[in-house]
């Protein structure tokens, strides 16, 4: 029974081709330099002669016309409907829509931004992570703390707006933040609300433009209503949405 190498030699390629596997190459090399070199040589010459004869098969003129026509086998053109239905295209389109939505949301959010919005968001994270034990216990009206901040900490215009002046406090503290600088934090009994007072951020021209309306910032489930007076920002922060704060702001207007 012939071994594997002999079987491979039986169908050895007539001419050298790329991609001949290693077993075949080894079998050919051994055959060319072994005892069966003459037999293998005869086989190769035999195969080459037949292949030459095959190449000499004339192609009928009528058939040859087919070879000239380049459009004989049309190139497949995918219609737009087929492309749209392709799952890969659907997945990419969905991903792009989601990314586009996120980008649009971020852009829209920043369009509403005011100088100091980043500082306000940073303080929302402080509010979310703090516990009341960090504060100095102090039970009074929030509006009464302006004097304390001025007298004890020399913080001028750190005033709690009228809307929130009557809220009862649990405690307060003043601390320095690397980005926000001097911050006054007040803990309120009402719905665990927190107030922050911090220096306003100048705009691109270096001017500080106060605003008396309420502007909102949101971060990780917390919302802050910010107003700016006398170069100092006041933020009322609450766990929840804008609606939860709107109630307090409208109540005061009435």
């Amino acid at each position: 029974m012939p071994d594997k190498a002999e079987l491979l030699l039986g169908c050895a390629p007539i001419t050298e081709k790329s991609g001949i596997d290693r077993a075949m190459r080894v079998a050919i090399q051994r055959a060319r330099h072994g005892k069966k070199a003459a037999t293998f040589g005869h086989q190769q010459a035999f195969d080459a002669a037949i292949a030459k004869l095959v190449r000499a098969i004339p192609v009928d003129a009528q058939i040859a016309e087919w070879f000239v026509n380049e459009n004989l086998i049309p190139v497949v053109r995918h219609g737009w409907k087929k492309i749209v239905r392709n799952p890969v295209v659907i997945a990419i389109a969905t991903a792009l829509l989601v990314i586009g939505g996120v980008v649009a949301y971020r852009v829209h959010e920043h369009l509403k931004d005011f100088p100091g919005a980043d500082k306000a968001r940073r303080l929302l994270t402080v509010g979310a992570s703090n516990r009341s034990v960090l504060l100095d216990p102090l039970q009074t009206d929030a509006g009464a703390l302006s004097d304390l901040f001025f007298m004890k900490h020399r913080l001028e215009h750190y005033d709690v707006p009228q809307e929130f002046a009557e809220f009862k406090t649990l405690g307060t503290r003043v601390f320095d933040d690397d980005e926000v600088r001097r911050v006054a934090q007040i803990w309120i009994k009402e719905k665990r609300m927190q107030f922050f007072l911090f220096p306003a951020e100048p705009d691109k021209q270096g001017k500080i433009n106060d605003f008396s309306d309420w502007r909102f910032v949101e971060l990780e489930g917390w919302t802050g209503a910010v107003t700016q007076r006398n170069g100092v920002c006041f933020m009322a922060a609450i766990r929840g949405g804008e609606k939860d704060l709107q109630g307090y702001l409208e109540k005061k207007k009435q």
């Binding site: 010459a45 035999f46 002669a49």
Partner: peptide, 17 residues
């Protein structure tokens, strides 16, 4: 296979093959 096979094949027409 004979050593002379290539010369024999040369005498053939493609149609015979």
């Amino acid at each position: 296979i004979s050593a002379t096979a290539p010369r024999q094949i040369e005498q053939l027409e493609p149609a015979q093959l």
